[in-house]
Simulated scan of single mutants.
Amino acid sequence: MSYNITDGDQELLQLLQGGSREAYLQVYKKYQRLLFLYAFRKLNNQEEAEDVVQEVFISFWDKCSKLSAEVSIAGYLYRAVRNRALNIFAHREIENKYLESLDTFLESNYESADTLIRERQIRALITAEIERLPPKMREIFELSRNGHLSYKEIALELDISEYTVGTQIKRALKVLRTKLGACIFLHLFF
């Protein structure tokens, strides 16, 4: 027995519950376009809307034999489309949160890595310029900055006057400030 698209849903449901593929095709023809438009209005994405409608019809075929005789086919299908659209929205939200946290993680690690690289480059530049200082000036400067010795302690260790120590450190700082520039020179102290 053949049913047209205009036949009632209850009769189609009875045929579906009996496994009628023809009844299923009639339901598909009757609701496919309407469900697509409904899904598209919700999702604003043609591919997702088409996928949702296809999934709903596959699920409907699998479940139609178990549906109650009082179920409205239209109500069932529209509700299924709405629920799948809500699942897509939830998935999008989770995906967006994941991507945001990934971006934040990558940005902070990139900034940290970039800062470390710059600091290493600056340290290498400073070290190279310190090594270019005359030997005695470099020794005095390194005892002061790296050894954390006072002028008096350096003078005692090297058997020179405190005045000489002070003069050599001032000259070393002047040379470094000139060669390294103000910004990098400040890095020496921080």
Rank of each mutant, 00 (worst) to 15 (best):
I5T: 15
T6A: 14
Q14N: 14
L15K: 08
L16R: 02
L16M: 06
L16E: 00
G19C: 07
L25M: 09
Q26S: 12
V27A: 07
K29G: 15
Q32E: 12
L35Q: 02
F36E: 00
F36W: 09
L37W: 12
A39Y: 09
N44H: 11
N45Y: 01
N45D: 13
Q46G: 07
E48N: 04
E55R: 06
V56H: 00
K63A: 15
C64K: 07
S65V: 13
K66R: 11
E70A: 12
V71G: 08
R79I: 03
A80P: 04
R82M: 05
R82E: 12
A85W: 13
L86Q: 13
N87R: 06
F89P: 05
R92I: 05
N96D: 13
T104A: 12
F105P: 00
I117T: 08
E119I: 02
R120H: 15
Q121I: 01
E129L: 03
R138T: 03
E139V: 06
S144R: 13
R145I: 15
L149F: 05
A155H: 04
A155G: 03
E157R: 10
L158D: 00
D159Q: 13
I160C: 06
S161F: 05
E162I: 06
Y163T: 12
T164V: 03
T164H: 14
T164C: 05
V165W: 03
G166C: 05
Q168F: 14
I169L: 11
K170A: 12
R171N: 10
K174L: 06
L176Q: 08
G181D: 03
L186Q: 04
L186H: 10
H187W: 06
L188Y: 05
